[in-house]
Amino acid sequence: MKKTLKKIALASVALLALTGCGLSPSTGVVPASAPGSIQPIADLPDNATATVTSKSFTEQLLVGKIAVIALQTAGFNVTDMTNVPGSQPARELVLSNSANMVWEYTGTAWLTYLGHEEPVVGSEEQWQAVHDEDAGNGIYWGRPAPMNNTYAMAMNEEVTEKLGITKLSELRDLDAADLTFCVDPEFNSRRDGLTPMLEAIGLTRGSDVPESNIGLYDVGAIYSATAAGACNFGEVFTTDGRIKALNLTVLEDDIQYFPSYNMAPMINAEFHAQWPQVAEIMGTIAPLLTDEVLQTLNAEVDVEGREPADVAFEWMVEQGLVTEP
């Protein structure tokens, strides 16, 4: 799986598939921008180009548009190739330098692209492992953001007040009647899902947590079910905008059970060698991308129905990264 020749072959097949699908630049338009803390790159040629890609879900569209706006402000002629369907196609675009960068998740790279079966414990350690190994594939990884879009357990307001717990490990101190869960079928059965999570906490499924305490839902329905009190603990993704919109409280993963999915700029190494300033620009943005920020921005798109490009631009103006022209 990790052999270089096999990766090259897989990349070639994926690129042929992309070509066959007629992949084209995003039709979305980003607002015009003027310099803020992001300044034009000195001596950048007028014909300098950059292509940004992203996957097709809300969070990826938001950070993709942030990168597009940042690079156009820096002086590049930017091709916006955000909204690519699927993780692997987006990566293959960067591997081939058909796109120059994407914001990617360290856990996805380690477990899916690089083929490892176990995550590396610790956000910094996981990023470093990906940074080092993926260099052999012609990929440069910039510094990660603090946001970590991983699994978590969340409670509604009433349960938060009633149980008074804040950490995952504290589930072991609860009565069986309070250990009720809303999860999706995949998380219910996967080897790094619910059952091993309970074991890591010190609970046994079937005895400490009766099967009748576990409800199966579609991923999207879990948020509303948890908010409505169908269960005390719902499986969520930590940067989902519905956490804030429904006033859910996320339990701290103090046992470090869930893999780290911090986001970082994944840049084609050839492009990085030519324009190292791009990683520097993304390095000024990354520290601002926290779980709370992404929850807010995601909610503006998913809950309020706004356009990702507009939300991204307004946030960048608020942060002083760019200004209105």
Rank of each mutant, 00 (worst) to 15 (best):
T79L: 13
C182Q: 05
A177Y: 07
E104V: 00
K6Q: 14
A264N: 10
G193K: 02
G164Q: 01
N149I: 10
G20S: 07
S54H: 07
Y217C: 02
T112N: 14
R91P: 09
D175H: 09
V311S: 02
M197G: 04
L23M: 13
E252S: 01
G75Q: 11
I8S: 07
K2W: 06
D208N: 06
G22I: 10
L5A: 07
I255G: 11
D240Y: 09
A154D: 05
Y113A: 08
L321Y: 12
A90E: 02
M101H: 12
K162S: 15
E59P: 07
A67K: 09
L111P: 03
A34T: 09
T249A: 02
L61A: 05
P185M: 03
D175R: 03
S12K: 04
Q72K: 12
M316S: 10
A312N: 11
Q274E: 12
G136K: 01
T166P: 06
L174N: 09
H272C: 03
W110K: 09
N83K: 13
L203M: 05
G215F: 03
L23H: 04
V68A: 13
L203G: 06
W141F: 11
A230I: 01
N77S: 14
K65A: 15
P40Y: 08
A11C: 15
I66F: 08
G193T: 06
E292A: 14
L114Q: 02
A299D: 11
I285L: 15
S96H: 04
E104Q: 00
M1C: 03
G164F: 12
V102W: 06
P287M: 00
P265Y: 12
T238N: 08
E186S: 14
K3W: 06
S87Y: 05
A309E: 15
T53P: 15
E292Y: 03
P25M: 05
E59F: 09
T166H: 13
S98P: 00
V29H: 10
Y151S: 08
L16P: 08
T296D: 14
T296E: 15
M316V: 01
A14N: 08
D310E: 08
D173Y: 12
A99S: 13
G241P: 10
L171D: 13
A228L: 11
P276M: 04
T82Y: 01
T112L: 12
A67W: 13
S87F: 03
I165F: 03
Q72T: 15
R91K: 03
G107T: 00
L216G: 04
P210G: 05
W315L: 13
F57E: 12
I201K: 02
T79I: 11
A312R: 07
V209L: 03
S33K: 11
L203Y: 12
P31Y: 03
A42E: 13
P259I: 01
Q256A: 13
S12A: 15
I214F: 10
E252Q: 10
V278C: 09
R172V: 14
G138P: 01
I255T: 05
